[in-house]
Design a protein around this nucleic acid. Structure first.
Lengths: 216, 216
DNA sequence: GTTTTATTTAATAGCTTTATTAATTAATGC
DNA sequence: GCATTAATTAATAAAGCTATTAAATAAAAC
């Protein structure tokens, strides 16, 4: 076992250590710019050891990416349970999504990046996950249709509504370097800005569909 | 001169040919995955010739990127002239921006990608362009404040309003592979979908700020 | 304790990529 | 036409990357 010898490092712990560190590197630099040499360096072991455990860079990446992609695709969720109003359901979706992505702020870039640069890999993974997203859309749509019927919400497809939420939320993360630059934000200031912006996003999404008179 | 010999290829024409082709490759694959070998192959010349004209891959990229970055940053523009209503100003901004980016659908990904992976280069370019964006924001803000004063629009910062528009518009392009996959779109179907979505985006942006009663 | 198995490393083969160099071909000036 | 300059190519050095191999070390089994 490399690096620390205090506790008996079992194979699976070490494998996990590599996975954790590799995840960070991939999130920072994407697949193409990440090298097994860099991963090994950060783990503190020989580069060959990365290949001993995962054989290829591709297999290592796919182990991580599939999990990450699933997390990304299921980051939009809503609770129908507590007989919340539709407004509160939407508020919950927006803020919950923002919170989950805030814990993985670099994930949106990685997803978009790999999706664009390696559509083949992406497609083979997407198949497994499609249904989770579609069932979420069906749930959202059934709530939405009730509201539209009751004339409390304007005509809009569940897909468009979802796109509104995803666009407004995710853009905050993929454009972080630009916004931070323009505003001169440190990382912490940026995170804080995202939090504030959550209210603004909810307001935009909700007013964008609501037919009820808005208190200004 | 390589490839076609029909017309006398002067140095500058050829330089431009390389630039045009390199632009496509960079837009498709980003800086890291683009090779001068691939560019030369598409141009139809020897790989060394790319270096003869531009010395390094980096210099070639920067020549293109600066222009592209400027186009990206100034893609949001608005005409104050024709004494349009604020609603029409916003509609114009949304649709015009969407139109310009539609002509460069791969540009948002390249910008975000390079911004994230090479913040150093990005910063050195951003400095020259910041003022253009800020003056646009000032113009928008002066119109916006008038509306807020008149209670026709709710309190919102010009920056948040701009973010709303950019988020909703640009997400359509960076998430194209995902949306096309989920919806089973061909490229043409996708472009068509973006067009339709323009109305939805304007509606969301406008209702998101307007205090006037909305016809449902 | 010795054998067997698992883990780790050093070394390196085999690619790919950028960039340079020296030689070749084409264009231009006189 | 001949000399000079520009454009183009083939060849390759240098560097970095992945993946493999063979040898060394540690752990486990008995």
């Amino acid at each position: 076992m490399p690096v620390k010898k205090e506790h008996p490092v079992r194979s699976e712990n070490f494998e996990q250590l590599i996975l954790d560190i590799a995840e960070n590197v991939f999130l920072e630099r994407g697949f193409a710019l990440t090298t097994t040499t860099e991963i090994a360096k950060r783990v503190g072991c020989n580069q060959a050891l990365i290949h001993y455990y995962f054989r290829t860079k591709d297999r290592l990446f796919e182990r991580l990416f599939e999990k990450k992609f699933f997390a990304f695709m299921t980051s939009v969720s809503f609770r129908q349970e507590d007989n919340l109003s539709f407004k509160e359901i939407i508020r919950g979706i927006v803020h919950n999504h923002l919170k989950i992505i805030s814990e993985n702020p670099k994930l949106p870039f990685l997803i978009i990046s790999e999706m664009t640069l390696n559509p083949h890999r992406f497609r083979s993974i997407a198949e497994n996950i499609e249904s989770a997203v579609k069932s979420m859309l069906i749930g959202l749509n059934s709530e939405l249709q009730k509201e539209i019927m009751a004339k409390r919400v304007r005509e809009i497809s569940a897909f468009d509504l979802l796109l509104n939420i995803l666009s407004l939320n995710l853009f905050m993360f993929v454009s972080q370097p630009l916004i931070s630059y323009v505003k001169g934000f440190t990382w912490d200031e940026y995170i804080n800005f995202v939090k504030q912006r959550g209210d603004e996003i909810f307001l935009t999404v909700w007013r964008g569909i609501s037919l009820e008179p808005q208190k200004q």
